[in-house]
Simulated scan of single mutants.
Amino acid sequence: MGGDMIVLENEALSLGVAPLGAEMQYLRTTGGGDLLWHGDSAFWSGRSPVLFPIVGRAVDDTIAVGEHSAPMSQHGFARRSYFDLVEASEDMCRHRLSETAESRVVYPFAFALDVTHRIAKNTLHVSAKVTNNSATPMPFGFGFHPAFNWPLPQAESLPHFVTLASGGTPRRAALHDGLLQRDTVAGPFADGDLEIAEELFVDGALVFPNGADTLRYGPRNGPALKFEFNNLPDLALWRPKGAPFLCIEPWHGTASYVGDGPQIAQRPNSITLGAGEVAEFGYSVTVRV
């Protein structure tokens, strides 16, 4: 297992993708500005993990499918699994994770998870396709967990904002030990606008069920990133104390509710694919410098 990191380059961006987790390792402008968090374990060793077959924590870190149950840590096993390189060119690469004997012990399905990274001019496109190759229905959750530098390059002295294109004020699901409270509370957005500040994250991630929307991250004037999402209705924002990055996480599915059971199919916004069915997800980031 293993393999070399794939490097994609064009006139505006360069991108590195590793086979472990099909995880982005860097995203840079041609001017040398690093946009992606570099994974310093003093704060968080991740950079941009792929979350499958669950998003967030399970009650007692245990999942179940029918009568089958097994331990599963937060965000599932894909982020710690080696993917095979299926296709690559100067501006695109596609990695695939398939079931193994070890994965079937915890998640009893034949599946394929294809993750594609592509750069086109000043836009990064990331997409995923989940295929159920089993003869029985397959429940799962899926998400992306990219971390972007805070502040952005060439905007070090400027306040940064997350601004929703709709101007909405999505409600937030409070967390208790990594699990969601069932009742939502008022969120911190005001007319779609949220200034990123240390005190926002004292209780952990901000989770907005069905709150994903086209958004902009960056200062009012200056470098910024525009995000668009496909089939990823849930949104989370996360920043550990003192960390120089912000995670902007689009999901289809969330952590379990406090007090719920272990069944994956019963987790919030879980998906169940029939035999041979496919689900697709994606997001794009357009860089404005």
Rank of each mutant, 00 (worst) to 15 (best):
M1A: 13
G2Q: 13
D4S: 14
I6V: 15
I6S: 12
I6K: 10
I6N: 03
L8E: 03
N10C: 06
S14K: 13
S14I: 00
L15H: 07
G21I: 03
Q25E: 14
Y26P: 00
Y26F: 15
G32C: 11
G33L: 07
D34E: 15
L36E: 11
L36V: 08
W37A: 02
H38C: 01
H38A: 14
G39R: 08
D40P: 12
S41G: 00
G46Q: 11
G46N: 13
G46P: 00
R47T: 11
P49A: 08
P49W: 01
P49K: 01
I54R: 03
I54A: 02
V55A: 01
V55F: 04
D60W: 01
D61M: 05
D61F: 00
I63C: 08
I63H: 04
I63G: 03
Q74Y: 00
F77D: 03
F83I: 05
L85C: 13
E87P: 00
A88H: 10
R94E: 13
H95W: 15
L97Y: 04
E102K: 12
R104A: 08
Y107F: 15
P108F: 10
F109H: 04
A110T: 06
A112C: 12
L113I: 07
D114H: 03
V115T: 11
H117L: 01
T123F: 02
L124S: 04
S127T: 13
K129Y: 00
V130E: 02
T131E: 13
T131A: 08
P137Y: 05
P137L: 03
M138E: 03
F140E: 01
F142W: 04
A147V: 00
F148E: 00
P153A: 07
A155E: 06
A155Y: 11
L158V: 05
V162T: 05
T163S: 12
S166E: 10
S166K: 10
S166R: 12
G167T: 07
G167Q: 09
G167A: 06
R171T: 12
R172F: 05
R172I: 06
A173D: 02
L175I: 10
L175K: 06
D177E: 15
G178I: 10
L179H: 11
R182C: 06
R182L: 11
D183Y: 04
D183Q: 15
T184M: 12
V185E: 15
A186L: 14
P188V: 11
A190R: 15
D193G: 00
L194Y: 08
I196V: 15
L200T: 07
D203Y: 08
D213N: 14
Y217H: 06
G218M: 10
R220E: 14
G222A: 10
P223E: 01
P223C: 03
A224E: 12
L225N: 08
N230P: 00
L232V: 09
D234F: 04
R239Q: 13
P240G: 08
K241C: 02
G242M: 04
A243P: 06
F245V: 05
P250K: 06
W251F: 11
G253A: 08
G253W: 09
A255S: 14
Y257L: 14
V258D: 02
G259I: 02
D260N: 08
G261F: 05
G261V: 01
R267M: 12
S270Y: 08
S270D: 07
T272K: 05
E277H: 12
E280Y: 00
E280R: 13
F281I: 05
F281N: 02
F281E: 01
Y283G: 00
V285D: 00
V285L: 09
V287F: 09
